[in-house]
């Protein structure tokens, strides 16, 4: 079994990425973003993509790169406030957008990866999110039926991974990555440190290798910070 590829470009080639694909991506803001894969996707020129990702990046990084090149036809996200290209393309009708509550998004991806055909959630009852969806009273409370999400591909970023695809994440860079990893027909993982099997304690594995098809060590510059906040010198802070 050899899941290791040289870089993001080879990963996309081996995975046979194509126009019109649905891709589920990990990441929250710019943290834990599969950035090597996103850049390679831009360079590949594939288009008409549906991207399922909590956020849309910023104008010049993350999925913002693919919005600028108009490679994305549809976004499925919970919060897109940090990206003006997104807002412009959405308001002009160029970009199709499905806004999904963050927890519902995570659970839809989880369901897609776990072979669950849908679930009833209290989130969004009485709002536009519930319009046109089946609702049901369960235990005296109203719930709305949400559908699973599965991608033709999933892109994830981890801190450490071994050649078998076992992954460990770092701090809040975990976010959507473990659920995204389960929800691709083909899942591609980029890691900061590629190690040999056995170097990760099995007790510490967050994403077991069965979910990963291709893995490579990415190349990373200094990590970007969206909002640099500090405590006042000598005092406490939020």
């Amino acid at each position: 079994m050899n899941k290791v590829v040289r870089d993001a470009r080879e990963a996309l080639e081996r995975a046979s990425i194509r126009d019109g694909a649905t891709i589920v991506l990990g990441g929250f803001g710019l943290t834990g973003l599969p950035e090597n894969l996103i850049v390679a996707l831009r360079d590949s020129g594939v288009k008409d993509l549906t991207c399922v990702s909590n956020n849309a990046g910023v104008d010049d990084w993350g999925l913002g790169l693919l919005l600028q090149t108009r490679q994305i036809r549809k976004m499925v996200s919970s919060y897109v406030g940090e990206n003006q290209t997104f807002e412009r393309q959405f308001l002009s009708g160029e970009l199709e957008v499905e806004l999904v509550p963050q927890g519902t998004l995570a659970e839809r991806i989880r369901a897609g990866g776990a072979g669950i055909g849908g679930f009833f959630t209290p989130t969004g009852v009485g709002t536009v999110v519930a319009e046109g969806k089946e609702s049901r009273m369960i235990g005296g409370r109203e719930y709305v039926l949400e559908a699973p999400i599965r991608g033709d591909f999933a892109f994830v970023k981890a801190w450490k991974g071994d050649r078998l695809g076992n992954l460990v994440y770092r701090m809040s860079a975990r976010n959507f990555n473990p659920v995204a990893a389960t929800a691709g027909n083909v899942t591609l993982a980029e890691v900061e440190h590629l190690v040999e099997p056995g170097e990760i304690d099995p007790d510490h594995v967050i994403t077991p290798g069965i979910f990963i098809d291709f893995i490579f060590q990415g190349t990373y510059g200094p990590k970007r910070i969206e909002k640099r906040t500090n405590r006042p010198a000598g005092g406490a802070g939020a």
């Binding site: 996200s77 919970s78 406030g81 807002e87 806004l99 509550p101 963050q102 989130t123 969004g124 709002t127």
Partner: peptide, 12 residues
């Protein structure tokens, strides 16, 4: 159009 983020889940 910023999106609801986690707010709908939190209030529910």
């Amino acid at each position: 159009v910023k999106g609801m983020g986690g707010a709908m889940d939190l209030v529910a």
